[in-house]
Amino acid sequence: MALKDITLGQYFPGNTPIHRLDPRTKILLTLYYIVALFTAEFLLTYALMFLALASGIAISKVGAKTILRGMKPVVLIVVITALLNLFYTPGTPILSFWIFTLTVEGIWAAFFMTVRILMLITGTFLLTYTTSPILLTDGIESLLGPLKKVRVPVHELAMMMSIALRFIPTLIEETDKIMSAQKARGADFETGNLFQKARALVPLLVPLFISAFRRADELAVAMECRCYHGGEGRTRMRQLKYTRADWAVIVLGLLGCIAITVMGHFGL
């Protein structure tokens, strides 16, 4: 059941102050954070942001282990980026061999780039770890609300996203089941060259597509039966509401952002 073990929604239910924040606050905060991360250029500003991130993780009780496990897939990208920065940044050479030249600037650039990527990933993980996918889409829909005026189908996009997220686990389970059924008839998904492997996927993909279409059809009928006709005039069961904590966090985040930009000007 290896397929089932993949966590895609990666939401960790909890009831910490971070979990309770309005999803819009968390999305806005993450956006500030990403912008600040790319404007910050110096040790002190990074240290400040790291402090903010670390306290966020501590409050959310997600656990350093989970965060580190989430890093695994990006290790290769980080290493490659670091190596490229290390050897291809022009500046004062320290040592050089063959086509590689190590520079002082390169070491700094590699260090900052690594920190930047790792902090970027950790920060966005904190958002998805503490916000359920449904709240996340609700938040995005609400934040993009003004775009409705220029006829962007915001509600429809958000609904599509919710449905997609909802059906990922179902599709994984279905894939698992069909795979087992075809294996029981001697299908072999593991051995053979690339061409054979691709061919072996046909008995898996055809039933999977058919059942996905069938599900989509059933879902559409079920939604129509309950008079769903798009976003206009639709009310919500869960209303999003900013609390005092949300405003505090938003203001604090904005101030932090301004502080980092100002500090950047003074070369800190």
Partner: peptide, 17 residues
């Protein structure tokens, strides 16, 4: 063994392709 022990899953019609 997979060939000697045939297994028909629940709702097997969804595996036709």
């Amino acid at each position: 063994t997979r060939f000697q022990v045939g297994l028909v899953f629940q709702y097997p019609e969804y595996q036709l392709f």
